[in-house]
């Protein structure tokens, strides 16, 4: 499987732009961690652009063809057959002149814009389910084994090791078959997300465990223990807020890996299956037509790249924002984040 676990995702980076002049020695009011992170993140041009693009793609995918029974504003849906206009080439000529079929039609006349949007919607949905589920499982497993140690840790970590070496493709294929047998294809997309989420949490669990292992030895945890705080309180009030950076960043990067994994699985026929569509599935259905109808290949691919790129840049921006060792940052500048750098 070419997809990587979150631990493999590119390392720490510092992309806050531009060298910064030394800050004047002024008395600055204190900033909370949340404020610092937010300001550092909004300082990061690449991350903000990606965030905006991502929101646009998200809205486009979910409002255009409708979602969960709510009709969208686009005139076709991904299953309708419309008579082919000419050779079904794309009619989009500019950002506001879309024409009849902006992304063209596939070889049997379905509107390709609707198909791409539906595919993007499914891919995003699966991505979010994976992110939420794998994030939750990973944090719970990692936190429990890192905080309680002993037998809890041994059992949970060996379980993690077992899940790590089970091939993801196999898990997905098993799911596809069971869904078709027991549930029917309506819930297919949701269940695919759930199933993948249940196998992809391992990397995050290891990272969270490491973070908890080092945090639980710190003085403030000892202090809380002596003050009589319960385990629940220490975990949720003292340790988790300090580990939240690692968790958020790695969940984001996990989601970018998840969207590649989902499209790849659909491409080789173990993910989303017809009659529903996914970006990977429509590429696989249409790749033979590259010579005659190249748009069938370009548009879904570009959407995958766009979504994945945005998520990666957002994750990178978050990582920078959460990294306290960030050299190019000082609170004085963060306070003036809105103003142009002097």
């Amino acid at each position: 499987m070419s997809t990587q676990t979150p631990a493999d995702v590119p390392g720490q980076t510092e992309t806050v732009p531009g060298p910064v002049p030394p800050a004047p020695e002024i008395e600055a009011p204190g900033l909370s961690q949340g404020q610092i992170v937010r300001r550092k993140f909004f300082d990061n041009t690449a991350a903000i652009i990606s965030l905006v693009v991502f929101v646009v793609v998200f809205l486009l995918a979910f409002t255009s063809v409708g979602f969960a029974g709510i009709p969208g504003w686009w005139k076709y849906n991904h299953t309708e057959f419309v008579p082919l206009l000419g050779d079904g080439a794309p009619t989009v000529t500019g950002p506001f002149s879309w024409g009849e079929h902006p992304f063209g039609q596939d070889s049997i006349g379905r509107d390709y814009f609707a198909m791409t949007m539906r595919g993007a919607q499914n891919s995003l949905l699966i991505m979010f389910i994976i992110g939420a589920l794998a994030g939750l499982t990973g944090v719970v497993v990692g936190a429990c084994s890192g905080y309680f140690r002993g037998w809890t840790e041994a059992v949970l970590m060996r379980f993690t090791d077992i899940v790590i070496i089970i091939p993801v493709v196999l898990a997905a294929a098993t799911l596809g078959e069971s869904v078709n047998r027991f549930v029917g294809s309506g819930a297919q997309v949701w269940l695919l997300g759930v199933f993948l989420g249940l196998v992809l949490w391992t990397g995050l669990a290891r990272l969270v465990r490491g973070e908890f292992l080092s945090l639980r030895e710190r003085e403030f945890v000892d202090a809380a223990k002596i003050a009589g705080a319960s385990n629940t309180r220490i975990i949720f009030k003292h340790i988790l807020p300090n580990a939240v950076g690692v968790i958020i960043v790695n969940t984001t990067l996990l989601m970018s890996a998840a969207i590649l994994l989902e499209t790849a699985l659909s491409y080789i026929g173990f993910g989303v299956k017809a009659p529903d569509v996914s970006l990977g599935l429509i590429i696989s259905q249409n790749q033979e037509a590259f010579q005659t109808r190249p748009w069938l290949f370009w548009f879904p691919g570009l959407f995958i790249v766009l979504i994945c790129l945005c998520i990666n840049f957002i994750g990178d921006g978050l990582r920078d924002a959460f990294d306290p060792r960030q050299k190019k940052f000082n609170a004085g500048r963060a306070k003036d984040a809105g103003k142009p750098a002097a």
């Binding site: 590119p10 990977g280 590429i283 994945c308 990178d316």
Partner: peptide
């Protein structure tokens, strides 16, 4: 570039 390559689905790149 490395983010871009990282975001390319390999089956798409292959075609």
């Amino acid at each position: 570039m490395s983010f871009l390559f990282f975001s390319l689905p390999i089956f798409w790149l292959a075609v």
